[in-house]
Design a protein around this nucleic acid. Structure first.
Length: 168
DNA sequence: AGCCAGTCTCGGA
DNA sequence: TCCGAGACTGGCT
């Protein structure tokens, strides 16, 4: 079956993100393209954007800007994580509960989902996080207070953390 | 079977 | 005390 995605851009102080919506909710959020590459504009194809998606997009935009401002979003759009494993969903749910300005280690996340030794798997889950920033994988660092990694570029991770007042 | 965005331990500066 | 290498880990592709 073919899932229909609606793609809408979000302008932020960090660049232009691109949100993908399915019928169930927000399915994916693309980071801004780095260094001079141009983000292709989503084709409209005469598609009608439903009022529901419009509302989700409003929530996503507000939440994203709050996050980038180092604050806690007061509401999130429904998230469509079909095709994701239970483990990944658990990991991301835990991450959503991390407050701005706070960090957790990969090990703590692993323990929180009941698999204290699955720390590397947690790292993998972060890497396949469909909604960077909104799911604050940047607040997850290594146990020895080192920065760890970040799919969207380590610099971005540092900057996001710095904006929330976190020192490494 | 191989990859990994981790963590712990231990040995040498 | 502070790295770096190595062993071990568990879930994903």
């Amino acid at each position: 079956m073919k899932t229909l995605f609606i793609e809408l851009p979000i302008a932020t102080c960090d660049g232009e993100y691109l949100a993908h919506y399915s019928a169930k909710g927000l399915a994916e959020l693309d980071s801004p393209i780095q260094d001079g590459l141009l983000m292709p504009k989503p084709a409209k194809n005469g598609r009608v954007i439903s009022s529901q998606i419009r509302q989700w997009h409003r929530l996503t935009t507000a939440a994203l800007n709050k996050m980038l401002d180092g604050k806690k979003p007061k509401a999130l759009p429904p998230i469509d994580w079909s095709n994701k494993t239970e483990f990944q969903k658990s990991v991301w749910q835990v991450m959503l509960k991390i407050s701005p300005g706070k960090t957790r280690s990969y090990g703590e996340i692993a323990a929180a989902v009941g698999r204290p030794r699955a720390v590397r798997a947690v790292g993998s889950a972060c890497g396949s996080n469909p909604i960077p920033v909104l799911i604050p994988c940047h607040r997850v660092i290594a146990a020895n207070k080192k920065i760890g990694g970040f799919g969207g570029g380590l610099e971005r991770k540092r900057e996001l953390l710095a904006r929330e007042g976190v020192k490494i």
